Amino acid sequence: MGNKARIALAALAGAAAVTAGAVAFAGASSAASPSPAPLVQTAQDTCVTDGAGYCTVSHGLGVTPGVILLSPITPDAADGFMLSTVQGSYTATTFRVRAMAYADTPKVLSRIWFGYAAYATTGASTSTPTPPVTSTPRTTATPTRTPTPSTTLPPTSSFPTPTPSGGGS
């Protein structure tokens, strides 16, 4: 198998993993899903990092994402890397990522492959929600209960009361 075929196969496997993760995440959270449902986009992408390990990624979500999940894809012939989003970089069309070869070494001027899932935290709807209809609650008379008299006798003891014995020590 050629190098290009391996890269394509690795990219496809990575995209499948991100998509499966997004489906599992969405399925796991469906029991208490928000209304309207959040807008989600999953994709795979590639870019060449700059001299500090950054690159800008375009997305088609149409709104600023609240959460972006990333998954690096490392083809067989490529070196591994760590990948993170850049805080404050999310817009309605792009976000930035940074690739690190090691904890303190950026992966500079390198092609990287990754999968992502972008989630809009607010509903994708741009319509104004209709305020809830309020009504005055009906009041009904609640019957009052009169206490039932009870005759409870004081408790009696069936044990004999000890009497003090004389003679102390």
Rank of each mutant, 00 (worst) to 15 (best):
A103Y: 12
T56W: 00
V57H: 08
R96E: 14
T85K: 04
V48I: 14
V86N: 04
P131T: 10
M82T: 14
S71W: 02
L83T: 08
H59D: 01
V108L: 08
G115E: 00
F95N: 05
Y90D: 02
V97W: 02
G60F: 01
I73V: 15
G53L: 00
M82Y: 10
V108A: 10
T64K: 10
S58W: 04
V108N: 12
V86R: 00
L69D: 10
T93G: 07
Y116H: 04
L69G: 05
H59S: 03
C47A: 14
A78T: 12
G62Q: 05
G60M: 02
V108W: 03
Y90M: 07
R96L: 05
D104I: 10
S127Q: 14
Y102V: 08
A103M: 09
T121N: 14
L61Y: 12
T56V: 11
A118L: 03
Y90Q: 06
T93C: 02
F95W: 10
D50A: 05
F81I: 01
V63W: 06
A120D: 10
A120H: 10
A101K: 15
T126E: 12
Y102T: 15
Q87L: 08
V86E: 04
V63I: 11
V48E: 08
D50K: 06
L69P: 00
D104V: 11
T130W: 03
T121L: 15
T91L: 01
T122M: 11
D50E: 06
V97E: 01
G115L: 00
L69C: 05
A101S: 14
L83P: 05
A117C: 14
S125V: 14
I73R: 04
T94W: 01
A103P: 06
P65V: 06
S58A: 15
T121A: 15
Y54W: 07
P131I: 06
Y90A: 09
H59Y: 05
V97G: 08
A118N: 03
R111S: 13
V67M: 12
M82S: 15
Y116D: 04
T105D: 10
L109P: 00
T56Q: 10
T122L: 13
Q87V: 10
G115N: 06
P129R: 08
V57P: 02
F81Q: 00
G115C: 07
K107A: 13
D104P: 03
F95M: 02
D104M: 10
S71C: 01
G123D: 02
G51Y: 03
M82R: 12
A103V: 11
F95L: 01
I68Q: 02
L61I: 06
A103K: 13
R98H: 13
S84W: 00
T74H: 12
D50H: 08
S110C: 06
P65Q: 04
D79H: 14
T122S: 14
T128F: 11
G123A: 11
G88H: 07
I73T: 14
G53P: 00
T128K: 12
Y119R: 08
A120Q: 09
F114V: 05
Y102P: 00
P65F: 04
G123N: 04
A101W: 05
T49W: 03
L69W: 09
V48A: 11
D79M: 12
